[in-house]
Nucleic acid binder design. Structure first.
Lengths: 209, 209, 209, 209
DNA sequence: CATGAATGAGCCTTCATTCAT
DNA sequence: TATGAATGAAGGCTCATTCAT
């Protein structure tokens, strides 16, 4: 039937695109992204060069698609987790739990190669990463809400706005993740996240004299 | 005389090498390192392409040499600065002054392009950077000495070793620098260094109740 | 019924071919013909790429068909116009009116892109244009009849045959049109046609002393 | 000696450039210019692709160089010829002699293929031909001076400026040359030049009644 | 030592055409 | 008839490296 034919073709076409995309991702993980050529991607995928340009406007577009996928995935993971935290947990605990969760997502869901790749792309001049930087929004707002709650409940006392503190936190998270990438596997991401945030908490926790 | 002739040749050859190297450095500061071609280097140096390959085995070798030099230079700057700090300054002040100095060196002596390059290389798969990571040694020991002094004089009170705290600090410095690289020029490196270290100090400063 | 089915199919198939052809024509008018891809044609026509190759052996075949159609159209326009001119108009006037009409047809009916294309094809090495050159026939005979009438009525006095003069005129028309193509849009085709033919008329008009 | 070495190398290098340039020209004559690839040029020249880009910035640059060369050559020929005409020759005769000379230069010095190529390039959208159009300057000014002299000496009587008439003449020359290109070899360029200019002269020659 | 002409593999991208469905 | 996924040769261009001189 026509319907079957169409869906069969569509399926095959989807498979081809997926093959190309997957091959690209694997190559990105192994080699510097700038060094991965369209040639090598299609060779690995076992398709023609022309096929590549059916599914992607350009090599850059594939990279963009890839970044957006990563971002969406991380955002989803972060936000879904926050909602699962018990409301009556202290803000300090929430903060620690949240960064622990981030570490888990990064280590197990994203993986080392992928994160390193993302950090590389961030630094590259060539690829636009506005989307990537905007992935912070969720992480920012999440941190922000935790901090605000802590302030309201008298648990935290800051000499800066909650927003500024959130930015600071993201920078630290990113810094530790960067360190993880360059010291892998001799660096425990989660442990370092926790240690550093505990240190931070010492500084901001309200100690009524 | 033979001797004179040899030393004369040697001098000329050294000059040629230096010219190439200097030109390469200037280009690296201005453009993405991957985009700097051997052609552009020798053109700027005013020497032949063949000359390049007399003094450097490959473009990669020149880059490695260059990176090592950068690292040495930074190390030297850091340690020489520390010795210039008045002995009776408080450790907190010293810490702040020190990170301020690092920011100055990075911004004005190294420059944005070079720092980004260093960070890219750290993350790259094909350049070995074990030597690079060891550039931390000086910065670690410098921080360590400041912290230790602070502890001895009762100014700091840590829940971790001074060494651990130094590591932590370097991670933060690197994290902020990374952020600077990806947000350049919309990010003030020095200001952020100071802000974040003041926050840290709040947490570690000894507050006798 | 069989018959109906067949004629229905035929109609649909004709429509598809027409759609492709029309889309191609529109694109040819807008863009350099070499830059119009089969892809863009079928996309505009809303049919599949396969359909294109059902109705046309190749892209070149479509172009040939298209050119022949253009030529036929121009011929038709020219000759139909001549018949509409009042019989008692002077030959000089007829000549001027006729070249004005040609300018109008070229500018508004054919268009710049198409004329340039025709002139390019004329000069191209790989497209045979014997048929194209014969498009002159109508224009020649039309001019010829005007000139002959002028001679008969004592209005013109030539030192060459009417036929030769017609050839000359066509060369001039083509020359001016060529100039229009290479100076477009800074060249007024009609104005130049008129000016140049007025100049010609000065030379051939019979001035009894 | 160093000097010899240098001149030997330079000579070889010049030869290579010439080989590339000559091969390109030959291919341009045989095939539509757009269809001539860098690959085919270097293959014919027997050099590597890289060599091409040592001597020419791009394929377009080679074409431009080629055009300029043609233009210079023609300009030189035209202007040198004009100076050789006896001063006391009548303007009509000068005009005829001049267009005869142009025909000779085109037929024997430039050649059919080259002229056709130039006319093709003129029509192409891709290649900038401002230089080509400006090649008219010499031809314009030459014609202009002849016409002006004719007017001053009462030989010509125009209803337009000398400049306008020169423009007109160039258009006609170009038109006839175009016709020659598309009808080659069944068209006598020189004969047609003469015939058409004689016709023109009939129109502008002063006939005191 | 120094030169710089020459190499050639590699890059990204386009597009007319085919063919299984 | 009609589809559209797939092909693969070709295009212009770059650049690290070599080698005869």
């Amino acid at each position: 039937m026509g319907k079957n034919e169409i869906s069969c073709r569509k399926r095959k076409s989807d498979e081809t695109k997926e093959k190309i995309y997957t091959s690209a991702k694997e190559l990105f993980k192994k080699h510097d992204i700038e060094k991965v050529s369209v040639d090598s991607i299609v060779k690995k995928a076992g398709v023609s060069k022309g096929a590549f340009y059916i599914y992607f406007d350009s090599k850059d577009e594939l990279i963009s698609t890839f970044i957006e996928e990563c971002v969406e995935k991380m955002d989803l993971d972060y936000s879904s987790y926050l909602q699962s935290l018990p409301y009556d947990m202290s803000s300090s605990q929430k903060l620690i739990k949240f960064v622990e969760k981030i570490a888990d997502i990064i280590c197990h869901s994203m993986g080392y190669e992928m994160m390193k790749l993302l950090y590389q792309i961030h630094l590259s001049n060539h690829v636009k990463t506005d989307a990537l930087i905007s992935y912070n929004r969720i992480i920012y707002s999440t941190l922000n809400s935790i901090i605000l709650q802590g302030i309201e409940q008298g648990e935290f006392k800051l000499e800066m706005t909650a927003e500024e503190f959130s930015k600071h936190s993201v920078i630290i998270l990113r810094g530790i993740t960067y360190e993880w990438c360059i010291r892998y596997p001799d660096f425990d991401l989660k442990e370092n996240y926790i240690r550093h945030f505990k240190l931070l908490l010492t500084g901001i926790t309200n100690k009524p004299s």
